[in-house]
């Protein structure tokens, strides 16, 4: 367990305060870890992915004997990850590990509250680095746009996890505003055509379609309307990957991690949260409501009282007269 430190001066106190949980979180820092053996391909992949992730990235230059999926040996599995996460205030890991059985493996690890939330391993099959494309590159630190193409990203649990993981990795920061000229590049993740035999139960990695990760820079051309026309230029890196091992998130922990802060009164008035019927805010900022009245019972409507219109039952005296 990491020692809890009491800050001794104002500077370290500020640092520790910045690490405290926040309502709107900062961007997740990723640590790039090399396993016992990484080939040339993996080194290139990790270097380029780090270039995309920068500045919220930390690189571990030394080799580490780490096997996150190997739960039998706890000393080399997740405990070191948790230690590093605490030390560096990071909540994402990218572990590169290449061996004969699983060549060019990349393991994405996502943390929650200093513990491992879920893990995902992909094998890199094809890789073209950023330097191989002689095209303009994006500025480090700019937010990418993300594009996912395939119906499996909405239906298949493995690909849903992949989508969520990659979004956390590249784009997981909530921002209220973005500078439009600052939008420079796209990370596009697309799948091979879905094989007809695939369903959610068949989980063998061979039957899962390939994943293509491409990065492009954006050129905006004028279209005569307010919305510009988009042209893409390959930027690199481009990766072709297959899904391998994975570990889904613990249900209880995921529930904790998906908790949202309570909505502010102002946000509720803007129409967030629970759906509110019959209420709207008009242009002046006033809250206006519509009230619905049920159907009126017209038979009980009080009209003008006249002697002749009165029912017989209402005048018992008269009825007794007629009956006798």
């Amino acid at each position: 367990m990491l020692r809890t430190v009491k800050p001794k001066n104002a500077r370290s106190k500020r640092v520790l305060d910045a690490r405290m949980p926040k309502e709107v979180e900062d961007v997740r820092t990723a640590i790039f870890v090399k396993g016992t053996h990484t080939g040339e391909v993996l080194n290139g992949v990790m270097k380029d992915l780090m270039a995309l992730k920068r500045p919220a990235a930390v690189s571990f230059s030394k080799k580490n004997d780490i096997h996150p999926f190997d739960s039998a040996s706890s000393s080399t599995s997740t405990s070191s990850l948790e230690f590093w996460a605490n030390k560096n205030d990071a909540s994402l890991f990218l572990v590169g590990q290449s061996n004969k059985k699983r060549p060019n493996g990349l393991i994405f690890v996502r943390m929650y509250d200093g513990r491992v939330l879920d893990m995902l391993e992909v094998g890199v099959e094809e890789f073209t680095g950023m330097a191989d494309f002689k095209t303009p590159k994006s500025t480090p630190g700019h937010k990418p746009l993300m594009h996912f193409a395939s119906e499996l990203f909405d239906t298949h649990p493995r690909f849903m996890q992949l989508k969520s993981m990659l979004m956390s990795f590249f784009n997981g920061e909530e921002v209220d505003e973005i500078c439009l000229p600052g939008i420079e590049h796209v990370i596009s993740i697309s799948l091979a055509p879905t094989p007809p035999s695939l369903n959610t139960t068949s989980d063998t990695p061979t039957s899962l379609p390939k994943v293509h990760l491409r990065t492009y820079t954006i050129r905006l051309l004028s279209s005569g309307t307010r919305i510009p026309r988009v042209e893409l230029t390959p930027m690199g890196p481009s990766l072709d990957m297959v899904l391998r091992r994975h570990e889904a998130a613990d249900a209880e922990m995921l529930k904790q991690a998906l908790r949202r802060p309570k909505l502010k009164k102002k946000e509720v008035e803007q129409g967030l949260g629970k759906k509110r019927k019959n209420m709207e805010v008009d242009e002046m900022g006033d809250l206006r409501g519509r009230v619905h009245v049920g159907t009126q019972d017209l038979s009980k409507l009080q009209t003008r009282k006249m002697k002749g219109l009165k029912d017989d039952e209402e005048r018992p005296g008269k009825r007794s007269k007629t009956s006798s």
Partner: peptide, 28 residues
């Protein structure tokens, strides 16, 4: 809707629809 700034127009983003897990628990 946009706001103007020194670097160009700032688009006001709505809150996201997709839910991503948080990195740390909500502040107490």
């Amino acid at each position: 809707p946009t706001k103007s700034s020194d670097d160009g127009p700032l688009a006001q983003l709505p809150p996201p629809k997709i839910q991503l897990p948080r990195a740390k628990p909500l502040p107490k």
